[in-house]
Design a protein around this nucleic acid. Sequence first.
DNA 1: GTGCGCTCATTCGTCATACTTTTGCAAGAG
DNA 2: CTCTTGCAAAAGTATGACGAATGAGCGCAC
Lengths: 238, 238
Amino acid sequence: MFAVTTSPPVGQHASVLAALGGRIASGALATGQVVTLDGICAEHRVSRSVAREAIRVLESMGLVASRRRVGITIQPRERWNVFDPRVIRWRLDLGDRTDQLLSLSELRRGIEPVAAALAAERADGEQCRVLAAAVSDMVVHGRSGDLEAYLRADTLFHRTLLEASGNEMLRALQDVVAEVLSGRTHHGMMPARPNPDAIALHDEVARAVRLGDGPGAERAMRAIIDEAAAALRAEQGH
Amino acid sequence: MFAVTTSPPVGQHASVLAALGGRIASGALATGQVVTLDGICAEHRVSRSVAREAIRVLESMGLVASRRRVGITIQPRERWNVFDPRVIRWRLDLGDRTDQLLSLSELRRGIEPVAAALAAERADGEQCRVLAAAVSDMVVHGRSGDLEAYLRADTLFHRTLLEASGNEMLRALQDVVAEVLSGRTHHGMMPARPNPDAIALHDEVARAVRLGDGPGAERAMRAIIDEAAAALRAEQGH
DNA sequence: GTGCGCTCATTCGTCATACTTTTGCAAGAG
DNA sequence: CTCTTGCAAAAGTATGACGAATGAGCGCAC
């Protein structure tokens, strides 16, 4: 239906961008290290134009800084645009998965309860329907143990909720949350069978939203996040 | 001491980027409208290399999309990277100020209470000291009516709190929050004299953080945001 | 008249190259 | 030892050429 992030990195420029971004996020290119444009050209067999465009984008993400006479310097993490979906994906795929997921969980604890509260005031009928359907799917696939299908339903639930918040900033975090959920199951940080309590809480959120109960939706959503964080800690503590 | 965001847009490429970004954010270039690369070259008297690099960055921000045979298409707001500091600044400076500030207020209502709670567990002595000093400055300059100095203290307070949260994602929102505070006072959306209650709440947050009282800090911070939103509505309803 | 396919013009994508500008660094003058 | 000065390295900019995709219009067949 839709692949929001640029799924097939087509175009020379996108390949170089992805390659360099990945190497920086993974730490293969360490902070403070410098590379030269010509070096990139040679390594990836591309022209200077292509390399320059890739570098410019990385620079706009705060991953590198380019200075005359010295070259392209990898920037410290503090300068990174940590909300850029591509940066998040690179870090989840190749970098510090666990730290990143813990950070994002703390962020979600702020974001999603507010989104739930707003959604309770603003969600339309269709969105309520989708939320209910998503919960239903979570129940079914949670029982059957089909983690992929469960992930799809879970993602749809959270995306819809953020969408229903009617706030563009929260809506923009759809991809972030989706990446977190996806990263959790695809990197073996989910229990083999989803926690039934978590599903029940999702249902509670859906109901509260439908009834226009802002505080209730906020509370239940907070519980979901706390449960997820606890589960993550448990998995990690293995 | 430091200007975190690229303060003086030096370099041909940065000028074009800022010009186009501003025109898109302000709506002067409407969604769906198309421009050509050659058109940009001619208009800004730059070479294709420079124009291409600017376009690539805009594309990475989701502001435009480039397709062969058709040109460069301005994208709808839903695709924008609304967390990119430059996008936020452009929108605050030239675009839909009020909507943007309301959106950001809702976002802050989620972010900052969580940051306060985390800070209560993680802030070090120095950060507590800075928070206290910032509150003190807010009291002084709030009384004297020096809005610029008040803004500096307020900004320092919120920046320090987000920093003390120890969460990189929250820390990355420092610029966003700072932009909001700055935008509020610089666009005539602040009362002539800051609300003393708001200052008292800041003090309460600082104390709770110092005492390690997470829930208390979270509550007080939530009250700050609610007060700010109410004040904004009042000013707007004028 | 309608529908299908083919050609073509347009616009971005990529490459190669030359020139300009900044700036770290080191050698030499005091 | 310090300061100046000149050099060279690297990014920044400009230009021109070619390649590739693709929307649009034209023409042909039925």
